Simulated assay, not measured.
Amino acid sequence: MKKILVTGALGQIGSELVEKLRNIYGTSNVIGTDIREKDGVAETGPFEVVDVTNEEDLFSVAKKHNVDTIMHLAALLSAKAEAFPKVAWYLNMGGLINALEVARELDLQFFTPSSIGAFGPSTPKDNTPQDALQRPTTMYGVNKVAGELLCDYYYNRFGVDTRGVRYPGLISYVAPPGGGTTDYAVEIYYEAIKSKKYTSYINEGTYMDMMYMPDALDAIIQLMEADPGKLKHRNAFNISAISAAPEDFANAIQKQIPEFNMSYHVDPVRQKIADSWPNSIDSSAAMAEWGFKTEYDLDKMTKDMLTKIKEKEIK
């Protein structure tokens, strides 16, 4: 990677990824794009307003900046996709095939994330293997499975250097939650600082995989810099750092804030989505093929999250 275009650059992942990439590869070599323009990455380096459902605009910007890599992050997340399934298909699939076409036409390296949402209730729940039955019951999950297959197709049919990971729930203190089922694992930290209590919309005992954003960003760079000859799977590698239920987050927070309390008011829509996902996934293929590893466990992440949120509030 020498010059990188990032779609969805103002989103939860994109806003932090662009800054990290600029620190590594140089500010002028990372072009952020999004459908809107606002403070943040739009002001710290090259930025273009681009609608990924418009292939001509996306192609024009990629060619203008002479990029060699696209990191395609623009998407509608799980809970919002259930509320607006047709919009989700139009954005998630239309945007993806447009970005893949641009990568094919300009011979670019390509990354896009999949999700544990690609699995469904018939998938093995514990230690879910890399290659497992995928029959999701959500529009977001359908989009992700179709996206995984589409990326494989563009690699096998056209030789596009496509790569991707299946992200678990991502936790960050920088960007606000963006409509995902695992957003409670971000909200709980803010509420712990603000009011020392939180009402979880996900039920007790509901285990899902999670990852702290620094590890999630490192995974992208590790994969994109990996020797392509060692990638047997290429797209949709299982990766995870933490398998936890809401009470596990509460217990970790109580080690830092003893008076913190949590209650439950379950959201049936998001609970149904969570129940269809794995409790834990097997990341061994990513470890073997490109050296995937993480730094943060639940306690280390919790301590850092609370510290960083306090620092933000002081500012």
Rank of each mutant, 00 (worst) to 15 (best):
A175S: 15
V6S: 02
N238I: 09
T302N: 10
G14P: 07
M210F: 15
A103Q: 04
A216L: 06
E225N: 14
L73G: 01
V49M: 10
I220V: 11
K300Y: 01
D68L: 06
A75D: 04
G229V: 02
T123R: 00
P278S: 01
A185C: 13
A185N: 10
Q256S: 11
P124G: 08
K310W: 01
R166H: 12
L91K: 02
S28N: 14
M262D: 08
K293D: 09
N156S: 14
H265K: 14
K312D: 08
N235I: 08
S243A: 15
A62C: 08
A252F: 09
D275N: 15
N251M: 10
K303D: 03
L76A: 07
I309M: 12
Y207S: 10
K38L: 01
D39I: 12
I171T: 14
T206D: 08
K38R: 15
V269G: 13
T7A: 07
A288Q: 13
T162M: 01
G179V: 03
E313Q: 14
I4P: 03
T123C: 12
T182G: 02
I171V: 15
Y154M: 07
S78P: 09
A81G: 13
L223C: 04
I188Q: 10
G8F: 03
I273P: 06
K315L: 12
P176R: 12
P121A: 08
R270G: 02
T199Y: 03
K38Q: 11
T307P: 00
P246Q: 12
N238A: 08
N156M: 06
P129L: 08
I309F: 09
A216C: 11
Q134L: 07
D183H: 09
T137W: 10
G180N: 08
P121C: 11
F84Q: 10
W290M: 02
Y173M: 03
S15Q: 10
E82H: 10
L5W: 05
Y207P: 02
P124C: 11
L96A: 11
F110P: 00
E43T: 11
M224L: 13
L58W: 03
H233K: 15
P85M: 10
Q12Y: 14
W89G: 08
E43F: 09
T138W: 07
F249I: 06
Q222H: 07
M305N: 07
V61K: 13
E16P: 06
E247I: 11
P214H: 09
S243M: 08
M213E: 04
V61D: 03
A192N: 05
T181Q: 12
V186L: 13
V61Y: 03
E289C: 03
K2C: 02
A288M: 06
M305I: 04
Y140C: 04
G94I: 06
E43H: 14
K300G: 07
S243C: 05
G45E: 09
L100T: 00
G205W: 07
K80E: 12
G159A: 04
T112R: 02
A9F: 05
A99P: 01
S15C: 11
V67L: 03
A274H: 11
I273Y: 11
